[in-house]
Design a protein around this nucleic acid. Structure first.
Lengths: 130, 130
DNA sequence: CAGAATAGATTACACGTGTAATCTTAAAAA
DNA sequence: TTTTTAAGATTACACGTGTAATCTATTCTG
């Protein structure tokens, strides 16, 4: 089951840990360290600390399997990203998403694929809102 | 002239200050305090501290007008929001903006106006990329 | 079984941030 | 001119965060 009301904010470093946990779970801390090390050269003690903090914050939980713990997220990635996106867009773009996309467009950061996906989204939206 | 390479990150509270400064500048600290107080009940000493930190970070500068300073931003709002958006989308959505918009859509956070603006952006994009 | 390895718990510590209070000095008021 | 006010500078201080090292207890290994 998923925690709908985590206790606190997730820091940047904590998010990186959660991010690889979301990729596949349950996972031991060694699994997580290993996956993280594909990208970040973080000391294993550091990752353990971050895991503990996530647990304390009510964002991650674990089951004991002998000596090791099997960690799993208590919040869904989609829920988290949705909330973060909403608050980000609200802070920086007065809540309107189009100006954000405009920034990407005028920066040449929009791919054909992005545009196709956006068109599909709009089509869908229009079907639901006629 | 605009600073293309600010010294450091801008904190949340600092951003709020910068945000109202962008609305209209140059501005005295009292102007800024007053505008901020429409929304945030921040002590005037607090705002002064934040302004000093922005100056130290190379994000804001000022000219002396007698006793008071006239503050002005050294970075443009559009540049800042564009960079932040890019890094945000890269962190949370693997760099692709469509999934972010999808989150808004499936949360019923898209207005007709948003959709109109997105369509216009896409049209524009397609004209530039044929 | 004794020692080594290792998992998690606890402790550490500097730096940034939120949130001001106090200090210093110059200008305005009386 | 003396006093008051108010601008900015300096100082404060607790809490979160990044980044581990050390402690403790359990499980392998020989």
């Amino acid at each position: 089951m998923i925690n709908d009301n985590p206790k606190a904010d997730i820091s940047n470093a904590e998010f990186e840990v959660l991010d690889v946990l979301w990729d596949e779970y349950p996972a031991t801390s060694s699994d997580i360290v290993e996956r993280l090390n594909q990208k970040k050269p973080w000391h294993d003690k550091t990752v353990k600390t971050l895991l503990s903090r996530l647990v304390k914050k009510g964002v991650v939980d674990f089951d004991k399997a002998q000596r090791q713990y099997l960690y799993r997220p208590l919040i869904a990635r989609e829920d988290y990203t949705k909330k973060e996106a909403t608050s980000f867009v609200s802070r920086l773009f007065k809540g309107k998403v189009a100006p954000l996309v405009a920034g990407f467009a005028n920066q040449n950061s929009l791919s054909q694929q992005d545009v196709d996906e956006l068109k599909a989204l709009i089509k869908q939206w229009e079907q639901n809102n006629d």
